[in-house]
Write a protein that binds this DNA or RNA. Structure first.
Lengths: 234, 234
DNA sequence: TGCGCATTTCCTGTCGACAAGTAAAATGCA
DNA sequence: TGCATTTTACTTGTCGACAGGAAATGCGCA
């Protein structure tokens, strides 16, 4: 990092500063570029983005509203920690949202929705083929986000987006550690889900979404439950 | 309103300003003191609360994050409109959250949770007896919020709180227009829900929560669908 | 009188500065 | 040396001010 080199030229459109900071920090948090628990210094960010603390602060308030940043009074904010002890609540919620949004997508989707969903699935498949973990994570998120959008319930969409983003951090941990060939299975499951949505088969959409969620949850749970002790000869 | 009389003395603890503004505006929005769609002037609020625009702005950003305020670039923010055309998405979501959180409460509640739930139910019954519509709305919200808390899934709790608060505005419209004796039924249903949770009967909790939600939804839908034309002799 | 354009006014977005509060460093004492 | 206390440094919370944009106003012209 070079602290004295601002990322952008000082030429900014009025109102774009907050957006830039918000999106940059958000991406860095979700991609684990900023480690959970690491402190966030407003002055430092102001220097880095070449703007005053005011827009930085607004971006941080918004991120805090989404739970990505935790702020202690009169003290440094920090990147939210991942609550490993309560991961089951996350798994429970994302499974329910997968099911509900996929069902609604089967009911309410329109041609443009299917087109978008298929595009994201193609991007996911490409990322799998290219072994690009970061792209897999991002496109997987976009795929399910597009399904949620097609369901046309903004409350479900908002919660799904929050869960999918939180999931990006978990998947990042997962893929950082070891790669196996599992993603191809995900791609196949995605294709089946698309078919069920396109056929407007609510029951099958629900069943596949649940199986897909269970698959991912079990995979991640196994990963986090692994025994990482090294078998040292003593 | 007297614009030149600040609501509080200038003595404030550092950091309390944002909280005060946030909670005040939030209450006024949810109780329809501030009409949906009405503009929000930062300077005016700054004068009213006797502070600068900075903490006002932060409170507005937080409210915007919860969807209670909409902000247009370079233009006045405004109180979020109620989207009557998509009320069904609200009903769908709150019904699901009633069911899920009540089920989880039956599974996960601890003694202190039951105590809190019963206390809110007592307050609701008192409000019904006193014919205090505003108190009914607030205590009804608190009752279901306590159930969500007892379920111990922060994702569900957060969505439930958002839906319950949005529901406060709808109920306010409802009770503003006419009072009938229905709330006593709600109190009875609440009592049955408490019994099911205490008995850890997941199936019955789900059934009662769904029936309770259906009851309220149908009531409100009938209200908003009423024919308000006056039968004038022409 | 009605319409298009320039001007003005008003509100927001951003800035730099100051004060309060906290954590760490420095100091004094046993 | 170890601990309690004061001092210092640093970070946030708040403030007043200025500049950019959009709506409202006023003007000129057909």
């Amino acid at each position: 990092m070079s602290p004295d080199t601002p990322e952008t030229a000082p030429e900014r459109r009025r109102g774009s500063g907050v957006k830039l900071v918000y999106e940059s920090l958000r991406d860095e948090i979700l991609n684990l570029v900023l480690a959970p628990g690491s402190p966030i210094d407003e002055v430092q960010l102001a220097e880095r983005f070449g703007m005053s603390r005011t827009p930085i602060r607004e971006a941080l308030v918004r991120l805090a509203g989404e739970g990505l940043v935790e702020t202690l009074p009169n003290r440094s904010s920090m990147v939210s920690n991942i609550d490993f002890l309560n991961l089951h609540t996350f798994f429970d919620a994302i499974t329910l949202m997968y099911r509900v949004t996929t069902r609604l997508a089967a009911l309410n989707h329109q041609p443009a929705d299917l087109q978008a969903i298929r595009a994201h699935q193609a991007a996911f498949a490409a990322a799998v083929a290219a072994q690009d973990a970061l792209a897999m994570i991002a496109t997987n998120r976009d795929f399910h986000a597009a399904i949620a959008e097609a369901g046309r319930n903004p409350y479900y969409t908002a919660l799904s987006l929050r869960l999918l983003d939180e999931g990006r951090r978990l998947l990042r941990l997962y893929y950082q550690s070891f790669d196996d060939r599992l993603p191809q299975e995900y791609a196949d499951e995605h294709a089946a889900i698309i078919a069920a949505i396109a056929a407007r088969d609510v029951y099958e959409s629900d069943r596949l979404a649940r199986a897909h969620a269970d698959q991912i949850v079990q995979q991640i749970q196994r990963f986090f439950a692994r025994d990482r002790r090294q078998d040292l000869p003593l």
